[in-house]
């Protein structure tokens, strides 16, 4: 479901599988646990392994954005699969400037 890597002050979380209300809670606590202990300058969420997401995925990104702000770091979301463009676009989350 999740693999993390910490290198050069960047914490990358490779999310794998489906993001819904059920899995988001588990993914969130794993990422936050790592971010709180490592205090990275940048948290990178890699979506290349995500096969499905509903609005829980948007909540997950917004929550990590706030979390990183609190920890004094930044957030970036990379490799969003094309099938998820629609939900990201309608969420208005692009205005946070974290999507790549």
């Amino acid at each position: 479901m999740l693999k993390t890597e910490f290198k050069n002050n960047i914490l990358t979380a490779y999310i794998d599988g489906e993001i819904d209300h059920d899995t988001a809670a588990k993914i969130r606590s794993r990422i936050d646990g790592a971010a709180q202990s490592l205090k990275p300058g940048l948290l990178c969420l890699d979506f290349s392994g995500v096969s499905f997401m509903d609005s829980s995925g948007i909540g997950l990104v917004m929550g990590r954005y706030r979390q990183m702000k609190m920890l004094g770091g930044a957030l970036r979301v990379i490799n969003i699969p094309e099938s998820m463009y629609k939900i990201f676009a309608m969420s208005g989350i692009e205005s946070l400037g974290v999507l790549r």
Binding site: H21, A24, A25, R28, D54, S55, S56, I58, G59, L60, M62, G63, K86, I87, M90, S91
Partner: peptide, 14 residues
């Protein structure tokens, strides 16, 4: 619970 408040908006647009 980090609900984005987008449930109905997603249903309507999809």
């Amino acid at each position: 619970e980090e609900r984005a408040g987008l449930g109905f908006a997603v249903m309507q647009s999809f």
